[in-house]
Structures are given as C-alpha cells and as structure tokens.
Design a protein around this nucleic acid. Structure first.
Lengths: 188, 188
DNA sequence: GTCTATACAGCGATAGAC
DNA sequence: GTCTATCGCTGTATAGAC
C-alpha cells in the first residue's frame, strides 16, 4: 500500500489545485499532469468535474473532523480554542499566498450558486459548532454562538488581507491579538 | 447626453458582472448582452479583456476616492469612520449575495498572480490610508495603522461569512459591534 | 483500468462588410 | 462605430483500442 489508488490520488491533487487556482480555473489537464495519468481516465472514477469537487469537499470535511477531534484530545476547552487560533500561524505561508482554503472555496461556489456550495459551507459549520461547544464548556452559554462567529470572522478577514498584501506577518499579529482577546473574554 | 458613450457603458456593465460572477467566469458575450452591443465591437474600445478589467479598476478607484471625499466633508473624524462602518449595513443585500466587491476581486486576482492584482489592491490602500488618517486625527498616532487594518479585516471577515451563509443580519450585527468598538477605543 | 483520439461547445480575438 | 462571420485555442466529456 505504498501508493493510494488512482481515485484517491486524483482527489488529493484536485484538492491542492482547487485551493491554489480556484475550482473554475483548474482544468482536467492540470490535474492529469499533476497526478500523472491521462485526463480521459478520469471518467473511470468520476462522472464529471463537479463529481471530483464533491469528493474533494468530502475529503476536506473528513480531515476537518479529524483535526478538530485531535485538538480536543487531552486539552482544556480554552487550550483547544488556542489550537484553532494558532492554526493561522502554522499555515501562514499558504494562507498568505492563496487565502483560507475554506473561505475562498465558499466565496467562489456561493457567488456562482453552485450546487456544492452548501457542502463547502458545512466546512464552516464544523468549525463553528466545534468552537461554540468549547465556549459553552467555558461557561459562555448565552453568547457562545456570537463568540464562535466572531473568532471565525476575524480569521477570515485577516486571511483575506494577508493574501491580498502577501504578508504572513498579518496572520502572526492576529494570532497575538486573538490570544489576548481569548484571555480577556475567558480568563482562567 | 441621455446615455453615456459605448465605452463607458461597457465599463459599467463589466464592473457589475465582474462583481457578481467573478472576472474569469464573466465572458464577453455576457457583457455584450448586458450592454446591448455585439462582442466584436469591444475591440474598438479595448484591446483585450484585461484592458476592460483595467478600466473597471480605474473606475472603482475613482468612485472610492469620491466616496471617501464625500464622507470627509463637514464631519468629525469619528463620524467619518462611522460612515465607513455603516457602509456594510447600507450594502448588506449585495454583500450578502456576492461578497465585498474589493475583497473578492483582490482574492481572485492575487491567487492567479494577475497583472492587475496590484491595481485592485490599491482599492484597499485607499481605504486603509483614509482610515489611518482619521485615527491620526483622533489622536491615535502610534497605532493608527493597526486600528485601520483591524477595521478593514473585521469588515472583510464578516463579509465573507455573510456571503457564505447568505445572512445580511450578520452585517448588521457587525456594524453594531464595530460602532461599540469605535466608542471604546476613541471615546468622545 | 489506462491509454489515444476525438466530438462538441465556449472562449478571446480578428477580419472585413456596411 | 457597429455589425456578422470566423479563426484558433482550450475546456469538458465521450468512444474505442489495448
């Protein structure tokens, strides 16, 4: 099992290319070149380009669930939220180059009223609900939703600007700011 | 002068369509249909699609300058910043449907390393510098840049989420939050 | 299951009549 | 200055050999 099967390799390559170039700008030939198979072979595994997108979104959902579950293990709710915040520092180079993988996908699909836009939106839902649960555990039952949304919006905004200005430092500064914000609104 | 000349009508229609569908997804035939001229006629006024984009960006820069200048007339610096904040409430329907016109354009062009990405980024620069000037006038000389960037990032983030979830109410709530934030950081 | 070859549509861009 | 007609290219999707 040195190498995943072809279908899985297509999904992995498409995920990366959809992120870097946008879904619509990414052609079969690009994916085919990246995977190392012919583009005609795609239809053995997928019925259309949208079908590949569905698989990519499904994989992202799975990975997001795993990431959130990993953060939850053996941590206090506040430390879990700090994991979320630090993510933007860990991925600062990619985010400052291509934006947030979830935000850019949702923006593109929503604007086009694409059938898979709701699936992409669920990626945000996963994070929102997980963040809300942490704030509830911290005793902020009444405004857990608001706090979760604020955290998500803050990260989305700085991701957009860090990408526009190609400045990873903006993400670092926001991580500091959000960490202080978390300390203020949920002191130990 | 009931009707602008054809070149101007093309720019206006392209501006709208680039916003709603994205630059790359918007074809000549769409613009032509919207304007009511044949697409072959475009090259009488523009040398390429990128040339139309340049004109659109130029028009947006001009309108942004006019908007900022209009806000500046006969207002205190704090009231000017409030104009900026309320903009997201005034345009809540468009923003929740298609996102921020500047943010989505910058995100698309930056990701593609498009030649006109710097021109689009200047739209952000106009707002950033104008906001910074207001904070300087309010006495926040040392952190005027930081405050301006925070305001811009907040609005970008909530625009992305309002668009993803198609909820104008998110923009309204953020206007309230930012107004309170402005009162706290710059009390009268 | 993978390949080559190809059909078909849409794109940006051009040429030439009016 | 506007139109129609068309070129060349690229995209998705399909057919059929191996």
């Amino acid at each position: 099992m040195d190498q995943p099967d072809t279908r899985q390799r297509i999904v992995i390559a498409a995920d990366q290319l959809f992120y870097q170039h946008g879904y619509a700008h990414c052609s079969f030939s690009q994916i085919a070149e990246s995977v190392g198979v012919s583009s005609g072979n795609f239809y053995q595994h997928f019925s259309s380009k949208d079908d590949i997108l569905a698989a990519v979104i499904g994989q992202r959902q799975q990975r997001t669930r795993q990431m959130l579950a990993g953060w939850s293990e053996g941590r206090t709710p506040k430390a879990r939220i700090q994991c979320f915040i630090r993510m933007f520092e860990q991925h600062q180079l990619q985010i400052s180059r291509f934006g947030c993988p979830i935000g850019t996908l949702c923006a593109e699909l929503t604007r086009l009223a694409h059938p898979h836009a709701p699936g992409a939106r669920q990626l945000f839902d996963l994070m929102l609900h997980w963040l809300r649960d942490q704030f509830v555990e911290l005793g902020r039952v009444d405004d857990a939703d608001t706090l979760a949304m604020h955290l998500l919006a803050s990260s989305q905004g700085v991701a957009t600007l860090a990408c526009t200005y190609q400045q990873p430092a903006l993400l670092q500064a926001e991580v500091v700011r959000l960490t202080e914000w978390l300390d203020r609104c949920c002191p130990d």
